[in-house]
Write a protein that binds this DNA or RNA. Structure first.
Length: 384
DNA sequence: CGTCCACAGGAATGACGGGCGG
DNA sequence: CCGCCCGTCATTCCTGTGGACG
């Protein structure tokens, strides 16, 4: 049930597999392949299909002589231009130091290794938008024009992205070269998600351990999200874990609903606890107010209390302007609801209220080394 | 019907830290 | 290794404004 598991069959992606396959097939006859751009929302199978096609291709290539090399790099995991390039080298059996060289030097070594091996290279750059947003399209530009002075060998690039907008960051030359072909992954429908879940459940669950309606619910919930298969699998996995923990015979609907809450809960907790100190201080003020039933604080009141909270924390408070900025960031994150209202003679301000459950916020502060001392000690509860 | 409150939120500028080329 | 540049966060200064109230 884990994210990186690559099943032997990918239901409802036959079309995409065929299309990608036909783009890459010429390499088996030592012919030029088009570069391609693959996009679709998260959990639509882009990564799985790319990896699947790559592995099929490299198996096929061994049958016919093995001149095709496939590389899969996740740009977000690799992180920097340098590490992406270094990672590409390692697919050619070329080890480069993890630091010390310039990126250009690593790229040169990479190119000369291609020449030496006369390799047909298929490169998949997953989450390519992260690389481009962080470092620009320089590396992509270099990669797309390697072919120009290569008498033996070929380089084909498949760029995978879930952000369609990122094309705007690309140089027109890079864009036209990269998007010779485009493959779009549409979101899965509820029915398709069900098939995927069924296939995985066969491997992960004992027969009869999963009710049909629980499975349908997972599919329906994920379909209403983005048609996100990852979400569907998460739901099923967490539901399974919950059922297991309470020694239930089978996974039922309520396990799935519980799993959904749990996933949401963890997501919020993660988002809140990684907030910067001053944003947390603002949240703390809102939390203490709402705890005693005080809702819809105004900006002025919030700022005063924020300053006093800062005093107790032993840090200098920020300006009201900055606090206003942080507040609208929290608003955009969906943590807080801040609406501008006019109180006539009493001026214009914001009505600010919490948009996430107080319980989760409380948990954040209890676990926070800065804030836990400001809170009353937790009531005794049996460990859950 | 104009005034004026209590902010909103844009623009310019400064402080700081980290990466990069020379 | 050093200076430079750039992005981020914060401050300062500022203009804009919906509507209750006199």
């Amino acid at each position: 049930m884990s994210h990186d598991f690559l099943p032997s069959q990918l239901p409802h992606r036959e079309e995409e597999i065929l299309k990608l396959g036909s783009i890459l097939a010429p390499s088996l006859r030592r012919m030029k392949c088009s570069n391609a751009f693959i996009y679709g929302k998260t959990g639509t199978g882009k990564t799985a299909v790319s990896k699947y096609v790559l592995s099929r291709l490299s198996r096929k290539s061994e049958e016919v002589g093995g001149w095709i090399k496939t590389c899969y790099v996740n740009c977000r995991v690799a992180g920097t231009e340098y590490r992406v390039t270094a990672s590409l080298c390692s697919f050619l059996g070329l080890n480069v130091p993890f630091t010390g060289l310039s990126t250009a030097e690593v790229l040169d070594r990479f190119i000369s290794q291609i020449k030496k091996a006369k390799a047909y290279l298929i490169i998949v750059l997953d989450e390519i938008d992260v690389l481009v947003k962080g470092y620009g399209d320089r590396l992509l530009y270099e990669l797309t024009r390697i072919n120009e002075n290569l008498e033996a060998g070929r380089v084909t690039i498949l760029g995978v992205s879930n952000d369609l907008h990122f094309k705007e960051f690309l140089d027109p030359r890079v864009l036209s070269s990269l998007s010779e072909e485009e493959v779009v992954f549409k979101p899965y429908t509820a029915g398709q998600l069900k098939d995927i879940l069924l296939q995985r459940a066969k491997l992960a669950f004992k027969p009869g351990a999963l009710t049909d309606s629980a499975l349908n619910l997972c599919a329906a919930l994920a379909a209403s999200e983005h048609g996100d298969a990852r979400r569907a699998l998460d739901l099923l996995r967490v539901a399974g874990e919950l059922a297991e923990r309470e020694n239930a015979e089978r996974v039922e609907d309520y396990h799935v609903r519980e799993a959904q809450k749990r996933i949401e809960h963890d997501r919020i907790l993660e988002a809140l606890s990684s907030l910067p100190l001053h944003s947390k201080a603002i949240l703390y003020v809102l939390y203490t107010a709402e705890k005693v039933g005080e809702k819809g604080l105004t900006t002025g009141v919030l700022y005063e209390r924020y300053l006093s909270a800062c005093g107790r924390l032993g840090v200098e408070g920020l300006t009201s302007r900055r606090v206003g900025g942080l507040l609208s960031e929290l608003d955009m994150l969906g943590v807080v609801d801040a609406q501008v209202v006019s109180l006539g003679r009493h001026g214009r301000t914001k009505r600010i209220r919490m948009k996430v459950p107080l319980k989760i916020v409380e948990k954040v502060f209890l676990e926070d080394p800065y804030f836990c001392s400001l809170l009353p000690p937790p009531k005794h509860k049996s460990p859950s």
